[in-house]
């Protein structure tokens, strides 16, 4: 491990503080016994956490979000893996176009996409449909999976695949036994990134969710526009805690380096 100079250390500390400070504040405010977002707070109370669990609509939104993120991330992965392999491995007309097409949802503002999809869903008569919400999210998160799959596929030792072929592996066996395991860290990392992006998405979701399919971020946004009370902080703290626990578990079981960086 190389040592950092004092300047680099200061800079890194500032970045970390800048990123973490708001989260720390939110978590602290969540424990306030008062009715406003106040800090420093007069005491310590779990009343706002209790309030969250009494709100069935919040729990419902949380369940929606989890389901949506899980389905959309999985669907995006199913699209991105073959697409990523085709883009890195094959030479075909329209390859660059396909690459850019798959990336375009990152470039187009979600606000614009949201309006467009709202109009489209109205025309199709599918407003408020959960299936179409999943599809909409799939579109915007596929680029994340695709990027990581492409990076992983480029890193694969082609001669290992040739070796498998020479040993008698058919195309399908080659993919299942050799290529897929070698790009699995990239796929897992891509899925995770997609899941987080879907779970987090507000802008597009505001347009295409109905009360029945409302996601947690949309619910929070709508709630916050009407009243600001510490319950929002409590919900945020819960989400942060859940994410942290998931990450720690993943790191223990599989190693975050392997998932996100692709180290073996």
């Amino acid at each position: 491990m190389s040592k950092n100079g004092p300047l680099a250390l200061t800079f890194h500390s500032l970045v970390v503080v800048f990123m973490l400070a708001p989260l720390v504040v939110v978590c602290l405010v969540a424990f306030t016994p008062e009715n406003t977002l106040s800090l420093p707070t007069a005491g310590f109370s779990l009343r706002w956490f209790e309030a969250v669990f009494e709100r069935a609509d919040f729990l419902e939104a949380f369940k929606n979000s989890l389901q949506l993120a899980f389905l959309a991330a999985s669907l995006a992965t199913l699209i991105a893996v073959p697409a990523g392999l085709a883009i890195t491995r094959l030479q075909f007309p329209g390859r660059d176009f396909l690459n850019v097409l798959f990336l375009s949802p990152i470039i187009i503002p979600h606000l614009v996409l949201g309006v467009a999809l709202l109009r489209l869903f109205a025309l199709l008569g599918v407003n408020g449909s959960f299936t179409w919400l999943v599809l909409a999210h799939t579109v915007v998160i596929t680029p994340y999976v695709l990027r990581l799959v492409i990076a992983a596929a480029i890193g694969v030792d082609r001669s290992a695949e040739q070796a498998a072929e020479s040993l008698g592996a058919s195309r399908f066996t080659l993919f299942r036994k050799i290529t897929l395991p070698m790009i699995l860290p990239g796929i897992a990392g891509g899925w995770l990134l997609a899941f987080i992006n879907s779970f987090d998405e507000v802008t597009l979701s505001i347009f295409v969710t109905s009360p029945a399919t409302q996601t947690l971020p949309v619910k929070m946004y709508v709630y916050a526009t009407e009243s600001i009370d510490p319950m929002m902080a409590a919900v945020s703290a819960l989400v942060i805690a859940l994410t942290a626990v998931t990450m720690i578990l993943l790191d223990r079981v599989y190693g975050l380096d392997r998932v996100l960086v692709g180290k073996h």
């Binding site: 001669s159 008698g168 592996a169 070698m182």
Partner: peptide, 27 residues
């Protein structure tokens, strides 16, 4: 290549990183 049945050894070794030595050889 899969039907030629030739043994090939590569410069980069080209071992399967996710398999043990025994599984590599048994492939």
């Amino acid at each position: 290549p899969s039907s030629r049945g030739l043994g090939v050894v590569f410069q980069s070794y080209a071992l399967f990183p996710h398999m043990t030595v025994a599984d590599n050889v048994a492939f």
